[in-house]
Design a protein around this nucleic acid. Structure first.
Lengths: 336, 336
DNA sequence: TTGTACGCGTTATCAC
DNA sequence: GTGATAACGCGTACAA
């Protein structure tokens, strides 16, 4: 493979000159610039970034940590849309993106330290789910910039993160329904083990309170994200006698069961009852009827997390921060 | 950051000895081995892979090319499950995985050549959709191993690829239905612009022929993968008067519309009509009723493509080949 | 079995 | 403006 030396030789200059031309140093005459570029193109030369990385101690590479099981059960299918966003940001910065799964026999700590020290990643994007307090400390100690995808508990000290604005998402949904005159609203799908779910419920409560419409704790219904649970809970709700005018589903799979339950009870959507669901998998537009959603821009979350990481890398005195990606209501056919 | 020199100094040996210990050269006494390893652990040393790559000219990195638009419209959402498979294979080989989007202003040729020459990827996995004949030639000329995801036209000379066995997938579906005594079978969703779709139709034809059941060309129905198209075409089919006993859907979104059409005509699934759909997005289990599918193992496709790439890298006199990942029928509730 | 010395391809430093 | 030369951290031929 052709190196800077051969370019220098062919152009009749020194290697330093070629290097300066490539990095377009100001102190190079236009004529030599032209001359050298001509040779570079002619020889089809590309600088060896590995050698460059060795001397500059910059790899222009960030790592994305994922945490998926070998059994292929994707707990986070949405995470792959995040990759796309990160990749876009990397491309703009001319960085490379390395993807590494931490779900191995190795300890997370070890794999990350190995990643940084041996592979020389300049920074790391990682889901908040794998960010233990020890890990935070270790990353800080190593001085390696990182950004979490998902909101980091404020008790954690100074960690940068990007998340969907789940709280405001539910608020928007409530307001949206309220503007149509709907006041009896239920939230189905509270999962206290998931932070994003907690935020969604928070938004529900705060909107209800702000608007001042009658609240009723029994209308926040806990269940996990499966269509079976959604069906069961919606059935119970209808059978309870005090049926809401609208339902907000905390997650996408869930909404499938909720809608089915309403249909099985021969109720009409949205005439008898309106439905809004959170959705990050574009499932909503596949349903009959198509579901009005709180649209979650997972791509943007990836894009912004990488961007924030680059800020940290370039300017490490930057104060740590959290960023919330705003949601928007996409009106389809389950609301009036 | 701590280097081999400091380890050598602390252990009272030369750097070459440390190097030999790390790469466990046979010509090192057990005692020095122990001594050096102790220091390595104590100092928490990790070899700098960039320096190693420079001298060995091996980066232990492969690149995955993706081809997604900036507008976030994922034509290939399934592709992200492929990444998981590739990553697993990389981890087994202790390779790094770089992800790069080729959908940029740069020419594909250029970006790939840049990737190889400057980033030193040792091999490339790329979707067949971006593999033009010139690109094949260029990659071959550069001597860079590559594996295509998706079947490569046999006219193309000696390209390694991995694909889903789409043809046999449809055959399995037909046999499955036939064993239940169903002979009037329609295939909905032939898209002549997509190779996988062509294969699926091939399988349909060949199975029909082998079994010797009555075939009827009008029962291979062209349409693209949307629920609207599926609905429309299924309606037409039912209205035509000659209704099939079973329908095979060539794609997942499509099946949603097909099933809805059957339901809207007050026909029962599977009593009046059975449905089997291809599915790569786990949509099938979200439907009511849950759809029997030809399950497409996209993870395995990724895993095998990377594995094949490693074979090529290690043993480049290997003959090029194609590998088909077999499908399996997952029985759910749209068949008896 | 171990150490010395050199080179990988590039950039930084210091000349001129 | 440009050129020598050292240095980045490591592997390896050769010497001992």
């Amino acid at each position: 493979m052709i190196s800077i030396k051969e370019v220098a030789k062919a152009a009749g200059v020194s290697t330093s000159t070629v290097s300066r031309v490539i990095n377009n140093s100001p102190s190079i005459s236009q004529s030599t610039k032209d001359k050298v570029w001509a040779v570079i193109k002619k020889l089809n030369y590309s600088p060896n970034n590995i050698a460059k990385a060795l001397i500059t101690n910059k790899s222009y590479t960030i790592a994305l940590l994922i945490d998926v099981d070998d059994d292929k059960s994707f707990q986070n299918p949405f995470f792959y849309e995040v990759i796309h966003g990160i990749e876009k940001s990397c491309q703009e910065k001319e960085f490379s993106l390395m993807v590494a799964n931490v779900n191995t026999k190795m300890k997370k700590q070890d794999i990350i330290s190995w990643l940084v020290k041996s592979k020389r990643a300049e920074g790391i994007v990682l889901p908040v789910s794998i960010l233990t307090r020890e890990l935070v400390k270790e990353l800080k100690d190593m001085g390696i910039p990182f950004v979490a995808v998902g909101e980091v508990d404020s008790i954690q000290d100074n960690v940068s993160w990007v998340d969907i604005d789940n709280k405001k998402g539910t608020e928007k949904a409530v307001y949206y329904l309220y503007e149509q005159g709907l006041k009896d609203i239920a939230f189905i799908g509270y999962d206290s083990t998931k932070d994003f779910s907690k935020r969604r419920v928070e938004g529900f409560k705060s909107a209800i309170e702000k608007i001042g419409i009658s609240n009723n704790d029994s209308w926040i219904i806990s269940c996990n994200n499966s269509k079976e649970q959604g069906y069961k809970e919606m059935m119970k709700l209808i059978d309870s006698g005090k049926m809401p005018q609208a339902v907000i589903c905390g997650n996408d799979s869930l909404s499938v069961g909720v809608i089915k339950a309403i249909q099985d009870k021969d109720l009409k959507i949205p005439e008898d009852i309106s439905v809004i669901s959170f959705d990050s998998r574009q499932i909503a537009s596949l349903m009959y009827p198509e579901v009005t959603t709180v649209d979650v821009d997972v791509f943007e979350m990836g894009y912004q997390s990488a961007k924030m990481l680059f800020d940290l890398i370039e300017n490490n005195n930057l104060t740590d921060q959290g960023l919330l990606i705003s949601t928007k209501i996409i009106k389809r056919n389950t609301t009036k």
